[in-house]
Design a protein around this nucleic acid. Sequence first.
DNA 1: CATGAATGAGAGTTCATTCAT
DNA 2: TATGAATGAACTCTCATTCAT
Lengths: 207, 207, 207, 207
Amino acid sequence: MATQGPDERGASPGKQPRTARGLATLRKLLDAAAAEFAERGFHEASISGITRRAGTALGSFYTYFDSKDAIFSALVQDMSAQVAQAAAAGVSPGSTGIPREREALAAFLAFARSHKEIYRIIDEAEFANPASYRAHYEGTARRIAQRLEAGVAAGALRPGDADVRAWAIMGMNVFLGLRFGVWAQDRPIADIVAETEALLRDGLAQD
Amino acid sequence: MATQGPDERGASPGKQPRTARGLATLRKLLDAAAAEFAERGFHEASISGITRRAGTALGSFYTYFDSKDAIFSALVQDMSAQVAQAAAAGVSPGSTGIPREREALAAFLAFARSHKEIYRIIDEAEFANPASYRAHYEGTARRIAQRLEAGVAAGALRPGDADVRAWAIMGMNVFLGLRFGVWAQDRPIADIVAETEALLRDGLAQD
Amino acid sequence: MATQGPDERGASPGKQPRTARGLATLRKLLDAAAAEFAERGFHEASISGITRRAGTALGSFYTYFDSKDAIFSALVQDMSAQVAQAAAAGVSPGSTGIPREREALAAFLAFARSHKEIYRIIDEAEFANPASYRAHYEGTARRIAQRLEAGVAAGALRPGDADVRAWAIMGMNVFLGLRFGVWAQDRPIADIVAETEALLRDGLAQD
Amino acid sequence: MATQGPDERGASPGKQPRTARGLATLRKLLDAAAAEFAERGFHEASISGITRRAGTALGSFYTYFDSKDAIFSALVQDMSAQVAQAAAAGVSPGSTGIPREREALAAFLAFARSHKEIYRIIDEAEFANPASYRAHYEGTARRIAQRLEAGVAAGALRPGDADVRAWAIMGMNVFLGLRFGVWAQDRPIADIVAETEALLRDGLAQD
DNA sequence: CATGAATGAGAGTTCATTCAT
DNA sequence: TATGAATGAACTCTCATTCAT
């Protein structure tokens, strides 16, 4: 994966700022865009809303971004990376198998509660920017599948179809995050995690 | 639940057609709208696109619907009902517990493959018509939870938190449908169903 | 002035009703139109609003009237005639000069208080149907001028320019009716009439 | 009364131009709107007609005004102020009582003859923007009433009800302006003024 | 680099009028 | 004569993008 310095992150190609003043303007625009998209959604959001929040002139937007799509896409990638990082950060080193999935879910639920805008932004990309949307979920599924394969290799999990399992687990996590993280916080995270862990460990069947 | 005859379905309140000719026009508009929204998405879709497909005058749209939102909402509810019906129709009578969930997933995946537009329409409601969106997923979760409680009562499933389980299962199904039903059909439905059944029955842990 | 039987009043030429049923429909449409125009004004009023109030089908409107303009014009003429009749009815036989003007003003103010819609309808004709508007005010001015000339002939009034006087008096009456008849009834009609009579009789100058 | 610099006059709140170029565009739009409303009336006037006359793009209208209503309202207030100023400017300093009313009428008639659009614009506000309409006539009546009270205090006029007298005089002036200023100029202003002055000074009664 | 005015295509919606039944 | 569906021109307003300063 190509890495970029934090300074360059976000601006459209050929529009990276060259001065400290420009860098500050870019930063303000990105923050303002995150707020605007989260609050109003992609279509309701307007460039003038973004520049108004950022305190810059309308024209300055196009100094750093090619289009509304471009900044939205940059934002989705940023959110996607944040989600991945939050999940990874919640996992203890050496953890594997079911405990590892439990930790990832717990971290994700906590992240969703404190970043309710992720659904608003990432999910709307399904329509506004399908490429970022697919990239986000395919990347997430790939990481889960790798964890599961590692768990199998370690003898912690039964062998099975990692791809199908990964999409199933990702779907569970996403919907649990939507319902119990974003829409309402009427249940302790611990309960949700415990119930899900039981499901993943032993299934639902009466033995 | 209030039932309505098929004649009344769809048109905005006070705009039901009173003649056969009107009924036919309403039908054409609904079909055209489904195609337009599926192909272009809510925001890109236009009323004139709908009436062009339907072969009616622009103004005729407003003979039956109050607004673009109104017809979209009608469509989402229709889709939601179709999904529910497809899942219910795929289940053999008397089926309960894990087999029942397997049958529901199989039916849903088949439905998704033949109605790829459902995601485009229902998921976009998250932004265009949040009320329909929540109603769809909350209704679906409720039905799953009831199935699970029945399974527990029948002794087929271990007792547990039906609500959390229902959202987890719904999430699995939705993402499996998106990945293996809509985005690509690179895997037989049977494989996906079998792997998921195993997960639900016994979990993933090496015993 | 061409007189028409009450049966024919209102309908556009060539559209007079030929049956009792038709006559009743025409009547309902005229009443409904008066209410609709009074309440919403010419431009906000809609044909469908009129037929809705009348309880008839939209198409039936065009059985009796050529257009929205046509029914509005018919209504303005009707209102105009009502105003003239009210003013005439308030005058005692044989009355002339200043007392006659006082009586006409009193009658008009009373009429305005009980028919607040006249301003809404007649004044809007200035824009929606200028011909009726001019006809109304020119006709009214002519009647006032004739009264004044009769007053001069009878020796009750000083000779002078009847036309200018008539427009001046009409303007007084109209604005007093608007302010003290329609906008607010915060003053007894008797006060207004007395003050105006004094003005007309003796002028304002300190002798 | 709050005064505003000519630079700020007209544009909707938050839409004042910040450059000379913007100021020029605003000016063109206001002039074009006055012509368009005068010629076609409020409802027939269109934003595109205004921008066509102004030679600007359609969208530029919305750079300075929130809506058609907003610019109309601005125009009515402007007209209202012009009328008041014309009447005030026509009065010699120190003039009071009947002569003062004569001068005001003469000035108003001259103004009406050279600004025939005032009726088209101000009177249509009765329907399109009732608040401005009432503000105009109530303000005018108040100014007349104050003049009359001053005349009484100066011993030039008999005591009486200033409010009723003011509305009566305003009505006279308005209708004389409509008939002899706007509709036709078939009579010299001097004749009209003389006849009206006689009426106001001595009334109509044969002594 | 920043500014903000200018652009114009395109949207949703209304409603007077026509006409087939 | 009554009905109500169909028509389509016309409207106001939005906003991503461009560009002169």
